[in-house]
């Protein structure tokens, strides 16, 4: 009973929104040439995924998976490089005064440059290629990971470092035994923010810097006034972003399960 009630609560709002949308188009509150009905979007989305009659979906038939894979590949590549570089920089700058003095000013000057401002630079520098998109995702994703790692490292309780020292931990092992495990929850927060940004940036860069992926489809569909495809691509991105977040949470729970019971639970 409780479970059913919870599930109803979870789907009530999205279901309501779709119904309002369907009704608004059918009652001609908005023109169906601009906004198709959700049912039309759903059918064409299905053709896009699984293929359909030539006359309905000649341009996009059965290409969904390829575009999703292209986008995912870029997101993963950019995110992976940003994760490695961001964590390493965050730990260095958080732990060593010299690294802070050497690296932090540069990073703080680069950080306020909007990622979108890097777009012309990337396209000129790398050309209309995959690497442009990956570079932009990297630039956008590295800062949340770097900053959260840095703060995670700085917030490690000094008493835990002392405890490990008096138990015999050598200074070069303190990083692995104390700082990294203690900073891990913060690092994962950075990773989740970065993954969200990565999906934003893959769309932006695919609209301009490459010729495949969900962002490319969106921009292409815009030129053909295919609002149904634009919306289907939007939902596809949302879905992929959601799945990416789930995967990260799953990995996070695996590594930082110990935080469960330490933090607040929502009220019923």
């Amino acid at each position: 009973m409780r479970w059913q009630q919870e599930q109803v609560r979870r789907i009530a709002v999205p279901l309501g929104l779709v119904l309002v949308w369907e009704a608004a188009v059918r009652l001609q509150l908005v023109h169906s040439a601009f906004v198709p009905r959700p049912s039309v979007v759903a059918i064409n989305w299905f053709y896009w995924i699984a293929g359909g009659p030539e006359e309905v979906a000649p341009l996009y038939s059965a290409t969904w998976l390829n575009h999703v894979l292209s986008s995912t590949e870029r997101v993963m590549a950019g995110l992976l490089i940003a994760t490695v570089v961001g964590i390493v920089l965050g730990i260095l700058v958080g732990r060593f005064r010299a690294a802070e003095q050497l690296l932090d000013p540069t990073l703080q000057v680069l950080r306020p440059i909007p990622v979108s401002a890097w777009l012309p630079f990337a396209v000129v520098f790398f050309g209309i290629k995959n690497v442009s998109a990956i570079f932009l995702i990297f630039i956008g994703a590295i800062f949340p990971i770097y900053l959260n790692t840095y703060h995670g490292v700085r917030q490690v309780d000094r008493i835990l470092i002392r405890a490990s020292q008096m138990l015999g931990t050598k200074s070069h092992r303190i990083l692995w035994r104390v700082i990294l495990p203690a900073a891990l929850p913060a690092i994962f927060t950075g990773l989740r923010l970065a993954a969200g940004l990565a999906w934003v940036l893959v769309i932006v860069s695919e609209m301009l810097a490459v010729k495949s992926g969900l962002g490319y489809v969106m921009w292409d569909a815009y030129f053909f006034m295919r609002m149904d495809m634009i919306i289907a691509a939007m939902f596809s991105v949302g879905l992929m972003g959601f799945l990416t977040d789930r995967v990260i949470i799953w990995i996070k729970d695996w590594f930082t399960g110990w935080t469960q019971g330490l933090t607040m639970e929502p009220v019923q």
């Binding site: 309780d157 008493i159 835990l160 002392r162 405890a163 490990s164 020292q165 008096m166 138990l167 015999g168 104390v178 495990p181 203690a182 891990l184 930082t256 110990w258 330490l262």
Partner: peptide
Amino acid sequence: SAPGPDRGVVFQEYALFPWL
């Protein structure tokens, strides 16, 4: 001159490693 395992410290705040 430095902390070491020859002197075991018991802290008021326990200072246990919460992830272990």
